Each structure stands twice: as C-alpha cells, then as structure tokens.
Simulated scan of single mutants.
Amino acid sequence: MKELARLVQHIRPGARASDVDALSALSDGLLTAERLTDGLKWASDQMPCRIELSAPSTDPRTVTSVVFPARHCDPEGIADLGSPEALLAAVPGATRAYVSYYQKKMESELIDLPASASGIVARIRFNRGHFNQTEYREASQFAAMDQREKKREEPYLERYREEEEKELAYKRLTLQEKLAPLRAEQARKLAELGAHGVLREWAQDYSGWGESSNRWLSFVDWLITESTPDDRHGFACNWNWDHGIDVHRWIIRQPDTDIATVATTIWNMLPSDHIPEIAKGREGYTNGIGLAHCEMLLEIAERIRAGFYQPREGFAPIGFNPPSRLKFKEETDAIRHATDLLLPPVVREPIAGRGGAELNQRCPAVFFEILN
C-alpha cells in the first residue's frame, strides 16, 4: 500500500491515462476506479483521490487534474503550516487565488503555489482556515475556472457588499439615531390613539396561543377600567414574554404605576442581553425584538428622569430587589453609554417597600390561563 501511495502522489496532469489505469493492478484490490463522464474516481479507505481525464476523443488520453484530500495525502507538505497566512508567508510566489463566502463568513480560501516548469499549478484549499485539499491543474485551466466562478458569485458578492456597508453605516449611528424610527412610530400611534387606544388596537389583532382576540380584549378592558397599580405589579411579575411588550407599554405609560413595577418590567426584559447587541449594531438587532425592547427602555428612562412616576398618596411603596448586577461579556464605551442612557440608577438598586406573594397574584384568575 505504501508503494501504491507513493505512485498515486506523483500522478500529475499530463500523465497518460494508460499509466493511471495500471495503478489498479498494483493496488491488489485496495484501489478501484469508477469511470465517470469526465474522469475516474479512485477510492479506498486508505487514500481516496480524484483523477480527471481528458475527453475520450483525445489521443492520447491524459490526466487533466488530480485532487488529494488533506486527511489522506499532503504532497506539498502544507498541513504543518496550519493556515493560509502561514502558507503565503512560507512559500515565495504563492498567491491568494480566490475567496468564497457563505452567509457573510469566509468559507473557502484558495492559494496557488508557483507553477512548475511544465505549467502545472498546485492549488491549496482551506475551508474556514483549515487545510482541506491539494488540486493540480494547468494554470490556464484554473484561470478559466476562476473566471466562471467569479461571474457566478458576483451577484451574491455585490449583495454582500451592500449589506456589509449598510451594517457598517448602522454601527456608526448613535443609540438615539438607531432608535429614532421606532420612537417616531410609537409617538405617532400614541398621538393618534392615546395609550388606551394603542393597547386596544393590539388586542384586536392578537391571538397568541390560539386565544381569540375577544379574550385579549376582555383582559385589556379589565386593565384599563378596573386594575389598580398593585394589580399591574402582580401582572408584571407573571407576564409571559412570548406575548410581546405591548401590554407593558401601556403600564409604563400610566402615571400611577409604581416605580417597583417599572423596575420589575425593566429587569424582566433582560437588558444585559439586548443592550450590548444594540450598542454594537449586530445583525438581527437592527430591527425586531432587541430594538423594540431598547426603545421601550429609553421611553421608561425618559419618564423616570422627568419625574413621571410619583409616590401614590395613601399607599406604601412596593419593594423591589434587582435580581442581579448587570454583567456584560465585554465593556465598551458604546455599551457603557447605552447602559447609562437606558437604565437610570433608581432601577439598578434595591427599592424599600412592601411586597410578598399576595402582590404576585393580583391578576384575576380568569386571565392566568392566557397569560402563562
């Protein structure tokens, strides 16, 4: 088998097909050739490879390309170098021939070694930074292949460049600029419908978990007409966030809502998850739930700073203890700025007051089955 491996490793474009066919006789059954339209696929557990032959009409028929998978054969001694950058630095004349992307991430990187005297080029493929295979062809063949591949991928690369520029432009925005479009939409709806109208509009269109809009409208009517600040605190403690944040928007817009209810809402929104992503402008947070959460955090913060939430006369304040300190995997100026902007100090510290299990059960039982 070692002799066979030595012979296969030295097969190069230009060799006669008859010489390649002779290898099967030496393999003692370990290496078999499956004839394909464009060549032969040599396979064995020890050393699979692919050898393409010229068209059957050519005389003599010759090898046009040879491909060796890295895990079985490394004729150029590439594996020890470890990376495309190390290969380019170690081999004079080596060039980066082509880079392909998948979902905005580099998928494959192709490095060409200098052509031999006979015009044969060894092309090394790295997949996601790891040595994958060695392929041998004439330089002109590789050039034609690259031209076809680049033409095929150009629409995708153009779209990638546009998306990348859009994402970079978004990252350059301040947090207020990122939130501005959503804030404008919320302000428009609030001016047109009022807080009660915005909430009722949501209930009319919502049918979460198969519940009819009538049941949600009944719940909303109870909130608007009958609920007390203590009721809302119990609701805030029991809300299933799969239903979104629209009901909480209404609660934080009520001047008699207790500051502890506001703080509970903030921490249940998981600010340590959303703030870093909005601050960095990571894809997926340029719109959607992360942006909506941060927009509502900003509305709450502005109301707190404006003194919107005042102690209720005749009622002892509700107590609150933050579940944890804010913890981020990294601390950047953008994250610190976002934290200071969205989380006023009052909601980061304990709030003295009454509490207990009774406050967590103030929502009428008839609504628990649709909320939890």
Results as ranks from 00 to 15, higher is better:
A195W: 05
M269N: 10
I275G: 01
C49A: 05
S100N: 11
T265G: 11
R159L: 07
G290P: 02
L270K: 15
A86V: 09
L87F: 12
S272C: 12
G129M: 05
K150E: 05
G39W: 00
G119A: 12
S24H: 14
H233R: 08
G29T: 05
M296Q: 08
G197I: 08
T37L: 14
E295G: 13
K178I: 04
T228Q: 09
E331G: 15
A33Y: 12
R123M: 05
A90G: 09
L36F: 09
Q103V: 15
A89S: 04
L87W: 10
N321C: 13
A306K: 09
A117D: 07
N238M: 11
E52C: 12
L26M: 05
E34G: 09
I335L: 01
P114L: 03
A169I: 06
E167F: 15
L298V: 10
A169P: 04
A203H: 06
E149K: 15
A139Q: 03
M269P: 08
R148N: 04
R348L: 04
E358S: 12
S27G: 02
Q46H: 13
L110Y: 13
I289D: 08
F235N: 05
L88V: 10
T174L: 03
H10A: 03
S118K: 14
M269T: 15
G82S: 09
K329R: 11
E369W: 15
Q103S: 14
D242E: 13
Y160E: 08
G356W: 06
L168V: 13
E154A: 14
L199A: 06
P345C: 05
L190M: 08
I335N: 00
L36Q: 11
D333P: 10
D38Y: 13
H248L: 10
G14A: 03
R336S: 09
S65K: 11
A316T: 12
A17L: 00
R125G: 01
T228L: 06
E201Q: 07
L371N: 10
A139I: 05
A122G: 02
M145Y: 11
W209K: 15
A90M: 09
L342D: 00
R354K: 09
H233S: 01
F308R: 07
H72N: 04
D230A: 07
D74V: 11
L113E: 00
H293D: 02
Y170W: 13
R12E: 00
G288D: 02
H10W: 04
S212R: 15
C73V: 12
D80Q: 14
S27P: 04
Q46I: 13
W241M: 04
P271Y: 00
T257G: 02
K329D: 07
L193M: 11
R128V: 08
L182K: 13
K166H: 14
E153S: 10
K151M: 06
M269F: 12
G82W: 11
G194A: 02
A184W: 06
W241T: 08
N268Y: 08
K329I: 11
G208Y: 08
C73F: 11
A17F: 00
E163N: 09
P276H: 02
V262L: 07
T261M: 03
R354F: 02
V8A: 07
G194E: 00
